[in-house]
Design a protein around this nucleic acid. Sequence first.
DNA 1: GCAAGTATGCACCTTTTAGTAAGTACTTAA
DNA 2: TTAAGTACTTACTAAAAGGTGCATACTTGC
Lengths: 125, 125
Amino acid sequence: MSMNPKPGNTSPFICGLDATLRIVGGKWKPLILFFLARGPKRYGELKREVRGVSDKMLIQQLKELEAHGVVLRRDYKEIPPRVDYSLTPFGDSLVAAMVPLCGWGEENAARIASVLGGGKGGRPA
Amino acid sequence: MSMNPKPGNTSPFICGLDATLRIVGGKWKPLILFFLARGPKRYGELKREVRGVSDKMLIQQLKELEAHGVVLRRDYKEIPPRVDYSLTPFGDSLVAAMVPLCGWGEENAARIASVLGGGKGGRPA
DNA sequence: GCAAGTATGCACCTTTTAGTAAGTACTTAA
DNA sequence: TTAAGTACTTACTAAAAGGTGCATACTTGC
C-alpha cells in the first residue's frame, strides 16, 4: 500500500503522511499555498485574500514555509517596502500531491459539514 | 486545478483540503487510520501499535473518528470488555485519498527531515 | 484477598497554537 | 503636522491540543 510504517523504520516520521503534515500542518498553511499556487503575491495582497488571518500568523506561517523550502520570498529592497512570495518547485510538487485529498474534501464537503455539526467551521468576516 | 476556493463559495470550508483536515487533522488520527487500514483491531491492540499514544488521546480520537463516520466501533458486550474498531467505507475512501500525500512525504522524507532540523520529530518510545 | 487485564471516564496540568493590540521605520498625500 | 500605506515585530492573552494519573466495574489467576 505504500502508506504503512516500514518494518525497519529509522526515519523520524511515522509514515509519509506524517512527514507531509509537518510541512503543511496548521490552520493557515494550506490556504496560503493555495493562493500562492495561482502565482506570486505581495504580502498585503495575500493578507487581503486569506481573509481572517492576522499579520502575526501570516508572517509566521510564511516564514516557516520559506524556511522549509516551500515558498520563496523576494524582497525588492524598495521604500516603501515591497516583497512578494511564490511557490518553489518543491512547493509546487507539494501542492500537486494535495490535490487528491482536496478532491476528497470537495466530494464529501456536504457530508463533512453535516457530520461536524452546523455550529462549527464558518469563516465569518 | 480543482483545489481553489470557489468564487461563490457558500460552504463552511475554505476549500476541499480544509474540509479533509477537519476530519483527519491532529497528531494521532492519521496513524490510527493507517493501522486500522490493515483490518479491525481491538482497543488494546491498537494502543500497543500506536506507540506513544495515551489512553485519553486514543479514546478521544477514536470517538471523533467514529462520530465523523470514518471508524466503526463494535462492542461485544462481554465481560471483561471487548471492543474492536474498523474503517467504514467512508474511512476507506479517505485513506485512499491520503495515499498520494503519503507518497510525497515518503519521497521527500529525507529532505523534510533535514529541513525540520535534526532536533525535532523523533518517536522515542 | 490482591494484582493484572479489560475498555473506558474524569480532573488537573502543561504545551502548543492562535489571536489582539500596539509599535517600528520609512514615504507620500492632504 | 497629521493620516495612511508598506511589511513587518513584539508582548501579552486566550483557546485548543495533548499528557498524567487515578477511578470504575468486572473477571481470572495466584
